[in-house]
């Protein structure tokens, strides 16, 4: 009986990887002769922003919390950075501003939850509303419907090499923190059993704030990548990121409740899977509405499978 459960547990655990493999093979077969370096570059461009934000967000999800304001946070960081560039003409200051604003937003988000003893989802809903309004105010303050960084300036940064470097370094850093430091182990402990974690003397507030701060770095990097990709920022820039991150992380095999089975790889696996799925549906000429339905059904299936495992298996000890 135990063996049966273990087998099922293994199958469920690798379902996201199997899904990624199936999607990759399907995409390659469907593209056939049309597969070109350009198409692969397109996959990278469509994956990278979600992957970076999701990687940082894994720390939040591991503690059993979630943040739906990440998209708006990216937008505010991007606008702040663009405004600084337009004042100083310094790309370095633009980059630093984006990281700093990303950290600041996530610090406020987590500090509100920690010190007012509010559930995190309450503060992130409030932040979503505040940040969305802030995006409109900041753009209006520029005297138009958009804020732009000169295309010629960011064009020099729009290279595959730089994007991959940012992704690899950030993921590498997160893997190190997550798997080889006390912080990562405590995050997982907190998500798996918050009461027990608290009783062992772990500071829940401190851990939550640190998790949000790491996500804030991801927000800042994503803001930078967003401006490099599309230097014209409007009120709806990055608006879909919040939902994309949730779907990608869960689709990548992250338990919805966080805890010990959380993994950084879920962010990358989920982000790549979602982009491949979107591309396949585009090739099949599915409308956006049908694509949305297919994604929702798959999302539910993955969550159900994860739940199945969670209900029947013991935590790894």
């Amino acid at each position: 009986m135990k063996k049966k459960i273990n087998l099922k547990s293994k199958v469920v655990e690798i379902v996201s990887l199997v899904a990624l493999a199936i999607l990759a093979v399907t995409y390659l077969v469907m593209m056939g002769d049309r597969l070109s370096p350009y198409m692969l570059q397109t996959l990278l461009n469509q994956t990278i922003i979600t992957a970076v934000v999701s990687t940082g967000a894994v720390f939040i999800y591991t503690t059993g919390a979630f943040d739906i304001s990440l998209g708006s946070a990216v937008a505010v960081s991007a606008i702040s950075g663009a405004m600084v560039y337009n004042k100083t003409e310094s790309l370095f200051l633009m980059f630093l501003t984006m990281i700093a604003v990303g950290l600041l937003i996530e610090l406020i988000d987590s500090a509100l939850a920690a010190f007012l003893n509010l559930p995190v989802f309450v503060t992130t809903i409030a932040m979503l509303s505040v940040l969305s309004a802030l995006v409109k105010i900041m753009i209006a303050s520029g005297g138009g419907a958009k804020i732009e960084v000169p295309r010629a300036v960011v064009k020099t940064l729009d290279s595959v090499g730089l994007k991959v470097l940012i992704l690899v370094v950030f993921i590498g850093l997160c893997i190190f923190i997550y798997n080889y430091t006390a912080l990562g182990r405590r995050e997982k402990f907190l998500g798996g059993n918050p009461i027990c974690a608290k009783l062992t003397g772990i500071s829940v507030k401190k851990l939550s704030i640190l998790a949000f701060l790491i996500a804030g770095v991801g927000v800042g990097l994503a803001a930078f990548l967003t401006v490099v990709r599309a230097p014209t920022i409007t009120t709806s820039t990055a608006s879909s990121i919040g939902m994309d991150v949730i779907i990608a992380i869960v689709f990548g095999g992250m338990p919805a409740s966080g805890g010990a089975r959380s993994k950084i790889s879920a962010a990358l696996v989920g982000s790549v899977s979602m982009v491949l799925l979107s591309q396949i549906m585009v090739i099949l000429n599915f409308s956006a509405g049908i694509s949305q339905c297919v994604k929702s059904i798959l999302f539910l299936a993955v969550v159900t499978l994860s739940g199945l495992k969670g209900r029947k298996a013991m935590l790894t000890r």
């Binding site: 370096p37 350009y38 692969l40 990278l44 290279s159 595959v160």
Partner: peptide, 10 residues
Amino acid sequence: LLLTGCGGSG
């Protein structure tokens, strides 16, 4: 994805 570094027109 890295193979695409040189870009070029599809």
